[in-house]
Write a protein that binds this DNA or RNA. Structure first.
Lengths: 346, 346
DNA sequence: CTTAGCACTCGCTTTGCCTGAGTGCCAAAA
DNA sequence: TTTTGGCACTCAGGCAAAGCGAGTGCTAAG
């Protein structure tokens, strides 16, 4: 078992990581003693650095260069060394200001969140749209587009609008549609989509549905509409910040990352991992388990509405991200969004 | 006035441009005589090249390099030299296949179009979402989210769903809302949004509206909902192809382009320019009038529905794009989309 | 345990040289 | 008059050698 690092080791490791985050250059022993209040000679620092390298917290890209942190180094830094401060009031106000616009719908709010995360962190902002199943049903409407096609529009409690085109076997008359609409709105309003689904399944199994033609069609229609969950969507903002990072000046890797952003599925997966966690999560480099995203780290936090967690938001950037400043931004934004979603429409 | 280029000049210019498009390398006199069926000595070719340079169709990056086309060169090539062939049946089938999925809504179709454009052209695909005002009204619905907030959901003929949150001064009762809904759906269905707007303005001015409280509120509500046009949205796919282009290996310019893509407003403007044109349009380099997009060209075409042009789609890439292969792809896609939008929901 | 000293390593930059692709021009050939 | 071969010239890119300097590890003294 690895023995605990001495205080001095930790202090030096912290200094190295912070210096590297600031400069993106390998950190040498001399630079450290000059700028970081380390009251030791370069030689002593070198001994410590050698030790830290042995333990796997640092590597040197070549003999005559300084050291750079490994993923293990970042992990240790984030877990034990980092002390995140709160945002000051001015920063909070600046962020909050962005949401002051009147009548902001949820979708706009989330877009704004992505934008804000990006511009305040100077890295790429990510916001996951709530999955259907965690939202609360409010209203459903059917619009007949052609004899066999019905557009199902439904609105969630928070004002998100989803729509789906459903093919029906047998034409529905306007009055039938209206009855179905009324029935569903009456019985299901206020339930979560998950509950609605469960209810549909339960009622379909029951006797009475068998004999009520209209009811059966109502359930068939709504279950078709609520059926297959969309894959989850992510709002990305500030991709261009990636192009500023010296570590990605290699175009091949840059292309991998941009492609990953276009596909979104990896981001969805990564954000999903943080849905049930409380507070801020940090995923570093290979912890993503996607080689396309090697060298990338994420800082994420879940946001919630009235009924528990809705989704996750965060920032993605190089491992060498200023965690201490971004973590509070992500944290504050997630809380702010949660607050806004919780108090609205009451 | 510039005198017309001789046949031989044109032939050589064409060969140079095609060679440059294929290789991204400055084209020298020798390479030309070897690969392009030019039955002349390198020396003669050089004379012609010098002439073309004087006329502004070519430049040489430095003394001992070959020539590359100027924007004027590309323009001439696109306007007069280029002969575009039709796609063969296999290609057409491949493209058409992508839209075979059942129950594709307009939004999905347009997303698919962007994707297809990108993957077939190996450049970045763009599809502009139809502006509200050119779509046909089909159905409107109001959902009360809070006493003062009404979510207006409306559906266009083609099955696009738009929604907007409207703040009202005075609470509306459910039955009032229902009456308004019925009235609007009865009177406005089948009109284009532009017509709807005109109608509202006209009726508001008329006497009878003044005395009918409900009618007035109906108009107020719907005009608020249809009021401010959203800025236009563009679906972008295949940004990562840009990173493959050797001419953009300069990260600064690359960043400009990615930022321009994120903002979208330039792309909206550029695509808007082609809305009323017939057939394929080509915009080359500085013709975009955006210095951020210098070195970029667009190939666009308008697509239409039942009621005339809806929007524009196309491909953006470096000036050095294979116009002869991409133009038919854009053309065919625009026609295909138009056909699909025209025949659906009949 | 700390630190000064020192030899050593090695990537980066600069310099100079060379090569080769490509040019322009001229005079001879067609 | 047009085409072509010849020739001197230009210049970017590649390569090697040299020097620089930041940084290291080790050792011995404080």
């Amino acid at each position: 078992m690895a023995k605990a690092l001495t205080d001095r080791c930790q202090q030096i490791l912290e200094a190295i990581i912070e210096e590297y985050i600031a400069t993106a250059q390998p950190v040498g022993s001399k630079a450290l003693t000059q700028n970081h209040g380390i009251r030791l000679s370069p030689a002593s620092v070198r001994n410590v650095m050698a030790e830290l390298e042995d333990l796997g917290y640092l590597v040197s890209p070549h003999t005559s260069a300084g050291r750079i942190p490994t993923e293990k180094g970042y992990r240790f830094y984030v877990d034990t060394l980092l002390r995140v401060s709160d945002l000051n009031t001015r920063q909070k106000d600046q962020i909050e200001m962005k949401y002051r616009r009147h009548g902001l719908q949820m979708a706009d709010m989330l877009r704004e969140a992505s934008r804000t995360l990006s511009s305040f962190s100077q890295h790429t902002g990510l916001v996951m749209i709530p999955r259907l199943k965690v939202t609360v049903f409010r209203h459903i409407e059917f619009v007949k587009l052609s004899p066999r096609q019905v557009l199902v529009v439904f609105v969630t409690q928070s004002g998100m609008v989803q729509n789906k085109l459903v093919e029906v076997d047998e034409e529905l008359s306007p009055s039938e549609l209206e009855q179905i609409t009324n029935y569903l709105n009456r019985t299901m309003s206020g339930m979560s989509i998950q509950e609605v689904r469960a209810r549909i399944v339960a009622e379909m199994a029951e006797e009475k549905a068998l004999y009520d033609h209209l009811l059966r069609r109502a359930f068939a229609l709504s279950s078709a509409a609520l059926g297959d969950e969309t894959d989850g969507d992510v709002i990305i903002d500030g991709t261009s910040y990636f192009l500023e990072q010296p570590e990605f000046s290699d175009l091949r890797q840059m292309k991998n990352i941009v492609q990953a952003f276009e596909q979104k599925s990896m981001l969805v997966d990564l954000l999903d991992r943080g849905t049930d966690a409380v507070g801020v999560q940090v995923i570093i480099g290979s912890e993503t388990q996607y080689h396309e995203l090697s060298g990338c780290s994420l800082i994420t936090a879940a946001y919630s509405g009235k009924r528990g967690n809705l989704g996750t938001l965060g920032v993605i950037g190089p491992n060498r991200m200023p965690y201490s400043t971004i973590i509070p931004i992500v944290d504050y934004t997630a809380n702010l969004i949660s607050r806004l979603l919780d108090t609205e429409n009451d």
